[in-house]
Computed example of a mutant assay.
Amino acid sequence: LAGCGAGGFSLEKAEVDRSIVTSSTPSSPAPPASSDTDSDQTTIGNAVSSADIQELGGQAVPWANAGTGSRGAITELVELNDGALTCRRFTATRESFDGVALYKGELCMAGAGGWRMQEFKAL
């Protein structure tokens, strides 16, 4: 303390140490957010296609994607059948690291018993 208090150190006399070199490493590009949304869309489609609408009785269908960390609920799930085509319309919430979003979608029966997402859009 006596050295500092007696004038042994002064900010005016301090010089920049030019021997220290700093740098940064290039950051790896973050995966596009759309890839997470696409993965979540597939997860939601799987939940919609496998839901037993009669057994649900209007209750929400929870969904979660362990790969993206997203989760949500599927509501307003209805099945429409015009004789030739069977479709399911729904509303889904998506809670993820980038926020909360609401989607409307429609999934229709494709050939060989599979389902295909016809519409999936953010509201």
Rank of each mutant, 00 (worst) to 15 (best):
M117L: 06
E55K: 09
R116H: 11
P32N: 12
L80N: 09
P29I: 07
D98P: 11
L1N: 10
C4P: 08
A92T: 01
A6V: 08
S50D: 14
I74C: 00
G45M: 03
V78W: 06
S19F: 03
L123E: 10
N81D: 01
R89L: 09
F9M: 06
L1V: 07
S10F: 12
P26F: 11
L85M: 15
E95F: 11
I53M: 05
T93P: 00
A47D: 02
E119S: 10
D38V: 09
G113V: 03
T86N: 06
S96W: 03
P31D: 10
A64V: 01
G3H: 13
A84K: 02
W115P: 00
G58K: 00
L56M: 04
Y103F: 04
V16N: 00
E95G: 06
Q59R: 13
S27P: 12
I20H: 07
S10N: 07
S28W: 14
A6M: 13
E79L: 14
F90G: 02
A33H: 10
T43K: 06
T25H: 10
G45L: 03
S27N: 15
V48N: 04
L77D: 04
P32E: 13
M109Q: 08
A122W: 15
L102G: 05
Q54I: 15
G57Y: 11
Y103C: 03
Q118G: 11
G67C: 03
S70H: 07
R18A: 12
G69E: 00
T86A: 06
G113T: 01
T91R: 13
G114P: 13
Q41Y: 06
L56S: 05
I53H: 11
R88V: 04
G72K: 01
R18H: 15
N65I: 03
A47Q: 03
I53R: 09
V21R: 12
W63P: 00
G67A: 11
Q118S: 13
G69A: 05
T91S: 11
K104A: 14
T43S: 15
S39D: 09
D98V: 09
F97Y: 12
I74Y: 03
C108V: 07
F90T: 03
A84Y: 14
R116S: 11
E119Y: 11
D82M: 06
S34D: 15
T93H: 00
G99Y: 03
A33C: 12
E12Q: 13
G111C: 15
F97A: 14
F90M: 03
T93I: 02
T68H: 04
G5V: 08
A51T: 01
L80A: 10
T68V: 03
G8M: 02
E106Q: 02
L11C: 09
I44F: 00
R18W: 13
S34F: 14
K13V: 05
A60N: 01
Q54T: 12
G58W: 04
S70Y: 07
A14C: 06
A73H: 10
E12M: 12
A64F: 06
E76Y: 07
D38E: 15
P29Q: 15
C87W: 02
T25M: 14
P31N: 06
